Simulated scan of single mutants.
Amino acid sequence: MKISEFLSPDFVFSSLAGTDKRTILEELSAPMSARLAGPLAGHLPEILLEREKLGSTGIGDGVAIPHGKLRGVQQLTGVFGRSAKGVDFGAIDGKPSFLFFALFAPENSAGIHLKALARISRLFKSPALRRAILDAEDAASIYSLIVEEDEKY
């Protein structure tokens, strides 16, 4: 599984404006909400927040991977965003998160969901990649960096 299979260039954002967990999750949910029809569309931030209640998805080193499973979603979809200021996301290292990779998975997709989480985690262990993304000029550059790094695996 390659990240480009579930992350498209138009779902990458170089400047999230949120200053807390809720507003970051709202921003990350917005493109997916626009894609979905019906009542579920407005509830995506709450679905991600419910998952956060089980434990923060802030994995440390400035990275968070909020995720949730959704009824009615047909395929795994990712949304990536960068925050220049950083946000207290309750990360395990106690430091702010700057890089956010949200995953929205079909309700009955445990295998693919876990594979995607593992792939993202492995990718973002690279300090060079994290630094390059923080320094990237725009969303297109961020997408290219992610895809190029992913090709190494």
Rank of each mutant, 00 (worst) to 15 (best):
F104H: 08
A136S: 13
G94E: 09
G86E: 02
F89D: 02
D150W: 09
I65H: 11
I24V: 15
E137H: 15
L76S: 06
L54F: 15
G81D: 13
I3D: 11
G72N: 10
F80I: 04
V147D: 04
S56E: 04
F6K: 03
S109W: 04
V87Q: 03
L117P: 10
A132P: 00
D88R: 01
S33W: 09
E50I: 08
L134Y: 01
L145F: 00
I3E: 01
G55A: 05
G68Q: 07
P31M: 14
S83D: 00
K152V: 14
A30D: 10
L7S: 03
K115N: 13
S29Q: 06
S141W: 05
Y143S: 06
E5R: 15
D20K: 14
L36P: 06
R22F: 08
A41D: 13
E52G: 10
T23H: 05
A102K: 13
D93T: 04
E149K: 09
G94A: 10
S109R: 11
G55S: 14
L103C: 09
R51N: 01
S141D: 06
L49P: 07
H67F: 08
L123D: 09
F80L: 15
S29V: 08
S4N: 00
G38M: 14
G78C: 00
M32S: 12
A91C: 09
I65F: 04
Y153K: 11
G111S: 13
E148K: 15
P45M: 00
L70R: 01
L40R: 15
G58R: 02
K85N: 11
A34R: 15
I112W: 02
E52N: 02
V63L: 07
L16N: 13
N108P: 00
V79R: 05
M32H: 01
Q75N: 06
F11T: 11
Q75V: 13
L44F: 00
N108M: 00
P96Y: 02
L49M: 12
E46T: 12
R22K: 15
S29L: 13
P96F: 10
L40M: 15
